[in-house]
Design a protein around this nucleic acid. Sequence first.
DNA 1: TTGTACGCGTTATCAC
DNA 2: GTGATAACGCGTACAA
Lengths: 338, 338
Amino acid sequence: MMAIAATIKDVAKYTGLSTATISKYINGVRVKEKNRKLIEEAIEKLDFRVNEIARGLKTNRTMTVGVLIPSLENIFFTSIVSHIERVLQEHGYSTILCDYNQNCSLENSKFDFLMNKSVDGIILIPLGIDKERIKKALEREVPVILVDRLLKGLECDVILVDNLNASYDAVEQLIIKGHKRVGIICGPQNLYTAEERLRGYIRVHEDYNMPVDQALIRMGENEIQGGYNGIKELLELENPPTAVFATNYEMTVGAIMALNERNVRIPEDISFIGFDNLQLAKVVKPNFHVVVQPIRQIGETTANLLLRRLKKDYGNYPSISRLKTKLVSGYSIADITV
Amino acid sequence: MMAIAATIKDVAKYTGLSTATISKYINGVRVKEKNRKLIEEAIEKLDFRVNEIARGLKTNRTMTVGVLIPSLENIFFTSIVSHIERVLQEHGYSTILCDYNQNCSLENSKFDFLMNKSVDGIILIPLGIDKERIKKALEREVPVILVDRLLKGLECDVILVDNLNASYDAVEQLIIKGHKRVGIICGPQNLYTAEERLRGYIRVHEDYNMPVDQALIRMGENEIQGGYNGIKELLELENPPTAVFATNYEMTVGAIMALNERNVRIPEDISFIGFDNLQLAKVVKPNFHVVVQPIRQIGETTANLLLRRLKKDYGNYPSISRLKTKLVSGYSIADITV
DNA sequence: TTGTACGCGTTATCAC
DNA sequence: GTGATAACGCGTACAA
């Protein structure tokens, strides 16, 4: 025999009160002290829980947020989601998670899927979504928050990381320590973050009046393989760099692997700065310098902004946050100033 | 002006038909050819979409599945989720994802949260959940599928990996190649998978009539640090192993890092078998042997089983699948048979 | 094949 | 403070 969930009606019957009163109690309206006791007893006894579906039908809210990310197999993205989910859940929202497998057309269709599911809001790490979809969502008063990547020409809340200065500061450290030839391993240039990180690299060169040698710029996929190949190519240059900056986590792993494999010592043979995973940087000896993104802050800021929008608080719309990274020091930079 | 979603009523008005007819059309019941055309035109024109909330209220189904995993910061888990989500989404289900941060009490409360959200089914990678909760869910006809870990004394569908034989086969390869002292780096023994993997190690020793040296068994957290420490301890033994088996991905990364750092060569100085991430194994030179879990298959099997249960197909309940791993060869085992 | 009428569990609007 | 009642949008007898 299966326990059918009790309804407001049941509680009403049990207490002798009306459904209206029960509903009010549930929604925080004051009721007579005596009735309060009674209702609480009934709820306990009948194991009553609000039917969110029925409530949603009335209120037009599902207490559900859609989160759409490029891939579930990338720890940077999923870590952000982890924090988002925690904060939202604390406020009673559940998180419908979708990934689009780095595929724009999937990105579009999953966005539609979420809209069809009547989510109350959407958090999106975008790739190449059709901006009209986002506009339409906003028109329907479904707030959308972009994360990590900007979509030019779209008025929308967005939480970013200051990638340009992250990169600038990292490379600057190398320059300050006397490095004239700094290699950079970066992601595809149609990707907002990768582009920004390369721009930081270029700008710091300009600011220090140093030429940019295109041969030192290695682009590849944001994967282990990309980092691995990048290092390989850099080491095989006639005039190889004395320092290398890897600009995302997977590439950092690949780069370290390639260096170890060739017995290239850090920092004696080459100086190195990695990206993102502090734990990894701490495990490898010598600990390497690493640019750490404020993952927790990204997630929490995003969730909190969305919660505000869900409360119809549209203060400082559109809000553009640019969170700061941290350069955590290690022992992977050789001082070669003469 | 915001586009309010059209309802069945609107479509009925537009076509001059009744809401019942529209509803039937939507649910695949035949209608007059002429009316079909008309309805389709109206749906297109009005941009009508079924209100899943209202439908859920009637059908008592939310077309939503809860997925509860130990951590969103572990790529093994999230990769499984990725496949689950894809399959479910193809069948119109959305996935509410929660993680419990490796914390049993959170595991319990998030399970409750999902039940309160009236999900149609739950997929759980369990740690120490109160089994009564699962029983109660099953009684309420909410199917639950366990993944990766067994809960003893609970009748429930479960999708497992044959960890014992995975470990057995890996270590056997080392033994066949003449290794008498094989180190194993494994996770905490209150964890189902870690325990199974160690049992495989022990069983193959028994089968080959080899003593098990407790000093060669290093336990730690399933993290990079655990693998790193494990290798370190093994290398510092008076009588160190000639081969090492790391039993999860993070530990494999840590182990490789530690070996590289000490310039211990694979396989000249030590033979090695890793776990899980084929891409990593292929990137490191020499490619190392690696036990690969059928992640895609785990996800798809899980999703498909749940879909069957959601259709009230309770054939071969409880279903216990034990999926096979694959030992992918590399060049990390030295043949030291004399 | 189509239409009428009602109910799903909740909230909101009134009166009282 | 409380209660009766009408929505919310859809599915489904049952009747036509």
